[in-house]
Design a binder for these strands. Structure first.
Lengths: 335, 335
DNA sequence: TTGAAAGCGCTAACAA
DNA sequence: TTGTTAGCGCTTTCAA
């Protein structure tokens, strides 16, 4: 790959002049400009952004760190963030943490070494101490979906307590009384807050939470499937289940299908996260729909604003999910 | 953020010595090494990879370019590629092309300017001329899912003709005779080849393809929904539909649901791409399951091999999908 | 309008 | 074992 020096010598000018042409500076004689552009064409020359960024102490890369891109919740966000970044001629690094604090820490250090312009992070833990080095580095940071407590950073969240409350209350109002919950890890703010909303709704409606049926798991299909397999063997099995994301919902469906049970007659089901297939599974699955694309877009907007103005006061944007009622939570038949 | 010079002066040594410590070179006195490490700690110093790469004319970034990360087919691949890259201490750029040739070209040029170490590309078009500049740049390239005709590059493909043939034949054997097909854009090799497999199966079994029911569309839900909306109004509507990916399958489901039809009694359905919810929609949806994670892993492996040895002969790996039969293609009831 | 040269942060060849 | 220095490819200041 040719460099700017080669272009300059071929054109019989200095590298400075070529650089001026590259960045469309006005003070270049038109015929010289044209000659240089022709040579750039012929050589297939592409200026190195790495070198330019190095010189200017800038970067056109931002990073997105999430637990797993295969969770549709994050997929939509990733897409939104890429859209915004692309508009700004920025590229994005995709990083999966698998809810693994160590992996997350290693990745964050790599990102610092890569001198990325900013990071959008869905943190595995809410404990701020693990992220202090990040703050000290002064790299623009936005957390998404989850919070880091005690850290003054921009974040985009959804109202998890309320959403879980809504979901649980909905089931209670439809006549369900033994509601199980399978929620993401308690170490994340989402997990903890959803657990709270669930508990609160039970208590407010005079139901006693049964700790056996309130679990926090690594949020993937197999985990939920295992748990529900066990629940369904119990004599006092739940008459309804809520889940913390669509992957957990799948796990529950798998288990219910295995046992040959029917939703909602045998057991009701409702969960977090709308996906295009929710209306087609069982008799349609009731969900909390979170504005995922919008969350991603908001986070990216916040990040780019902070990159431009690192001093601006930080902001916490909380978006609300909406309940979509479907057949999986039809009113319970009294026996 | 401090630089190597600052570390050196604080430690009272030259930058060379610090550099030696950073890259674990042996020839540094242990006490000096320790002192330097301590200072690196205290300062929170992180060496700039940008600078290092610039000096060494290397890069630890590879790019993944696909049409849309929201297609689960690509999501799984992306995850696989990130896993492999992460093992090699490489980061990945995520680029969505939206099947848009222009967007793809712009992105590719950006990637050249970013001096990425390699590109994994699912090309929007199979016409090689649009990619000649890429080949000339000599940047390691692997195409995934789709081919670029006439270009000597590594690629990882699935056997689309056979898969579409299998799917169509399966429907025919179950007694369906008026089979519609909604497939991705014909400009991509996947679209064209799947169309071929479909046609071939019809012909081999003595059925006459009806051009009205054989369409190529932008592969997203709404497109399929619109088309099926129209088909279902026709007197001679298809008795079965095959789709080119899971997003199209959703579109078909939406349309069928709207009309209140039942699968497979009123109309059968089968499509490309297994997802966790296929067993739960309708009475389970028959699919061709493609080994997406493995395709991604294979592509990444090929790419890294080529980065190490640019001269190695190129290779085309073709993986086969498997048919998973479910209720959506139960034998047709004779009337 | 143009060019020479410094310098971004690092590595490695060479010298001491 | 350690230091000096050139140079990766660019941009920008300063001078001409």
């Amino acid at each position: 790959m040719p460099n700017i020096k080669e272009v300059a010598s071929k054109a019989g000018v200095s590298v400075a002049t070529v650089s001026r042409v590259l960045s469309n500076k006005p003070n270049v004689r038109p015929e010289v400009r044209e000659r240089i552009q022709q040579i750039i064409q012929d050589l297939g020359y592409r200026p190195s952004r790495i070198a330019g960024n190095m010189r200017n102490q800038s970067s056109n890369v931002v990073a997105l760190m999430i637990s797993d891109i295969r969770n549709p919740f994050f997929t939509a966000m990733a897409r939104a963030i890429e859209d915004v970044a692309n508009n700004q001629d920025m590229s994005i690094f995709l990083c999966n943490t698998d809810e693994n604090l160590e992996k997350e820490q290693i990745y964050l250090k790599t990102l610092l070494e890569e001198r990325v312009a900013g990071i959008i992070l869905s943190p595995t833990r809410e404990n701020g101490t693990a992220f202090e080095f990040l703050i000290e580095s002064a790299i623009p940071l936005v957390t998404i979906d989850r919070r880091i407590t005690g850290l003054d950073v921009d974040s985009v969240l959804s109202d998890n307590v309320q959403a879980a409350y809504l979901l649980t209350q909905h089931l209670i109002q439809r006549g369900y009384e033994r509601i199980g919950a399978i929620i993401g890890l308690k170490e994340s703010t989402t997990g903890r807050e959803r657990g709270q909303g669930f508990q609160l709704a039970l208590e407010d409606h005079g139901l006693k939470p049964d700790p056996r049926f309130h679990t926090y798991v690594y949020p993937q299909e197999s985990e939920a499937e295992l748990i529900v397999d066990e629940w369904l063997q119990s004599d006092e099995r739940p008459d309804a289940i809520i889940t913390g994301n669509s992957r957990l919902t799948i796990g529950v469906l798998n288990s219910i299908q295995k046992r040959g049970l029917v939703i909602p007659q045998d057991i009701a089901l409702a969960g977090f996260d709308e996906t295009p297939w929710m209306r087609h599974a069982a008799s349609g699955i009731t969900v909390i729909s979170q504005p995922t694309y919008e969350m991603g877009k908001t986070a990216a907007d916040l990040l780019f604003k902070r990159i431009v103005d690192p001093q601006r006061p930080s902001r916490e944007v909380i978006l609300k999910g909406t309940l979509i009622e479907r057949g999986s939570t039809a009113a319970k038949l009294k026996r």
